[in-house]
Design a protein around this nucleic acid. Structure first.
Lengths: 253, 253
DNA sequence: TACCACCACTGGTATAGACCAGCAAGGGGA
DNA sequence: TCCCCTTGCTGGTCTATACCAGTGGTGGTA
């Protein structure tokens, strides 16, 4: 073996580091790609093997695998090895759009736009966006559907100074998240959410096709940019009979 | 300065490692304690300073700080230092007992025990605990109070073969989580939860002091042990007018 | 006064080695 | 046949060292 590095044994994974970026970073993407080709429970090459294959110190390899383990991509077992982890936290901790959420539940998401205009921020919206009351904001009102049936009512508000064009974007079949990310190029790595249970009454009940007084889940969501500044405020009212939250929580000692 | 190690400068933090357990582990608890005495944004001693103070290699110190950073307790900034992080994810990702949850909201948790007995698992409970229907289970029925007012209704089920003594434990002022952890010595690092919105009707409405038909949040919780096996199944019904879920979510690219 | 270069700090990456601890399979003895 | 111990793997801890890469203050120069 030694340094010859078997030509044919290495699957479709790079055999050498190219030298530009930090070695750890390169190893990391190699490992991420490798993990993508494996199934949960499959073992990764051992640390010593990776160190030798890519001509790295074992500590360097360990540092990267530690990162992967911290993110939940792999799981280490002393004496046995490192294994591709079951996908877990994703559901609870991951911020997903309605479209992504429905897809994960095996449903096809749709929209019916009720209104798309510019208005002055009221107290609640102003507080959510951290702007002065009266500031012009773009408002999007939609009924969100799953497999064609009404699932949720949604009203999103964004600062008009920055997102004025949103008032004219076609949103009937699109994901607001996608539009924000691709058209406007904004990132929102985190979101704060409050969820309360309320009765669905009045016009909301009609729009959602439920009897007045039935319970629903109301989400108040604030999308935050890299600097923790509010990008968007939205509330969504989900039908209680068709939607549930799934959480996976971890206990700290 | 140099190696004298100021006697009087070191606050109430241990100055030496005792040698029994791994050094990293000891350093870790020292740091956790230190963090407890600091406020968010406060700087930790530098890695080199910690290494010298406790006679460790810097890499050893780094490994532990890396762990703390991965858990979100501290934040590292290249060129500036390591700082106590704002408490964030804690609320959403951390599994907390009713008692802990209320405390975090500035309320005092209490209980009124409605029943504490052993019964045969019905289909729902059997499914939650992953046992055969009819298996004997301990059932705990409680009204949970916050500052003395009813906040939630809770029914917990545990395998009687393992937790028979629970039927006789005093739970009026105690936390079930505490009892499980201290008296039974079990660990439940994770939990799966489903949350739905329902109308509170019948006897439940009386117990919670709300008008029949008002909305509530119903949690279905399964506590899982280290091997992902169910330890306990519980449902809790929270008053919609007094309780809300707070989530902080992260977006993955 | 205003600016800029430098320097003393911070964490970030990387090395090469040692030994400990847990797991599993194979071989040998009862 | 069954059990146990050895052996060779795995990851876990720890050291001592080197250099890179940001940050922010200090002091000198224009």
């Amino acid at each position: 073996m030694s340094s010859r590095g078997g030509q044919g044994t290495g699957a479709a994974i790079p055999r050498r580091l190219s030298g530009r970026s930090p070695k750890g970073t390169q190893l990391r993407s190699i490992l991420e790609e490798l993990i993508g080709t494996l199934r949960p429970g499959d073992p990764l090459p051992s640390e010593r093997e990776l160190a030798e294959r890519y001509d790295l110190a074992r500590m360097t390899v360990r540092a990267e695998i530690t990162r992967l383990a911290a993110e939940g991509l792999v799981e280490r077992v002393q004496g046995r090895g490192t294994f591709v982890a079951e996908p877990r936290v994703a559901q609870a901790a991951a911020l997903s759009s309605f479209t992504e959420d429905m897809k994960a539940r095996g449903l096809v998401a749709g929209s019916r736009v009720l209104g798309q205009d510019t208005m002055a921020a009221d107290a609640v919206v102003a507080r959510g966006l951290d702007v002065a009351p009266g500031t012009p904001v773009v408002r999007l009102r939609r009924v969100r559907t799953a497999d064609g049936d009404p699932m949720a009512l949604e009203e999103a508000f964004l600062d008009a100074a920055r997102f004025a064009e949103l008032a004219d974007v076609e949103l009937e079949g699109a994901s607001l998240f996608d539009v924000l990310e691709s058209t406007f190029g904004v990132r929102f790595p985190t979101a704060d959410q409050r969820v309360v249970a309320i009765e669905i009454v009045g016009e909301d009940a009609n729009l959602l096709h439920v009897a007045p007084g039935r319970a629903g889940l109301k989400f108040h969501t604030i999308l935050l940019d890299e600097d923790e500044r509010p990008l968007a405020y939205a509330w969504s009212l989900f039908r209680g009979d068709r939607y549930e939250i799934r959480l996976r929580q971890e206990r700290r000692p």
